[in-house]
Amino acid sequence: MTDILMIGIRFLLFTDLMLVMGLAMFLLYALRSTEREDVRIVSGLVVLQPWLCGVGLLVSLGGMLALTASMQGVAVGEIDPNMLVSMAVETDTGKAWIVRMLALVVATAAAMQLGRHPRPAALILSLASASALASLVWSGHAAASEGPAGTIHRIADALHLIAAGIWIGAIAAFLILLRPASDDGRQARLDLAARSLEQFARVGTACVLVIAATGLINFEMIVGIAQTGQMPGSSYGYLLIAKLIAFSAMLLLAACNRWRLAPAFAGATSEKTAGVIRRSLVLEASAAAAVLALVATLGMLEP
């Protein structure tokens, strides 16, 4: 029961913080400054940000209460403030939580300024949400590694989360730009989507390389490459294999977008080509959600 609750909280936190960071960074690397100031283009990309930050704060608070209750062996209602203080003082997980909450407060403030000062607000929002996302490193296996190896494990894990967040945020951004809505900004959004989809090749490739390299480091730290043969014997092994399959599905769809659908869409920006690429992106987003659900579960399991 506690585990299902914690898995749900981890899934929500990963998804939420990755979307905040990925969407904020998209404003920076994909949009020109004139586009960032065009409400018809950016409103869809920024309107959810304060809400996503608020959800992040609430879920993070709920996560800390649930974790404290499970560590103390009491019900959530029986938590007293001293228990929370001791979590914050005695555990790295608690310290990381404080950093996450502070980062999310900054992020919320920045998110509410996206309309007035697009570029600085997006920059602060990106940095604050990246810090919040990186702080999740202390809620998984990387928290338990000690010494220099532990530091490397945590750096690798943070980079893994950030690269995944950039990718997943971009999928969300493309879906928002391609959403079927017939207003006078439609054409401008489709043009931007066509251009940024083509440009995303470089950012996307870098994300995939970072994810693969840091994923290998995490695997070595948690399981050990030498133990790979024993993987199919445990539920951790099965779920990790399932995660790799879902990740491969994301890669295939991304490759299809990059080499087939995006060029076709850029060549003939129409409702039809937009529909095709939107369907592919929905599939990619579903695979991403599966990966995140598996990650949320894997962090709770023994390797």
């Binding site: 338990a144 220099p148 190896a149 490397i152 840091t214």
Partner: peptide, 19 residues
């Protein structure tokens, strides 16, 4: 730098204190 990080990680090897 990522490759360097990976190399160090492999050199330090697991002994992951996940206990």
């Amino acid at each position: 730098p990522l490759a360097a990080l990976a190399a160090t990680a492999l050199a330090l090897s697991p002994t992951a204190a996940l206990a």
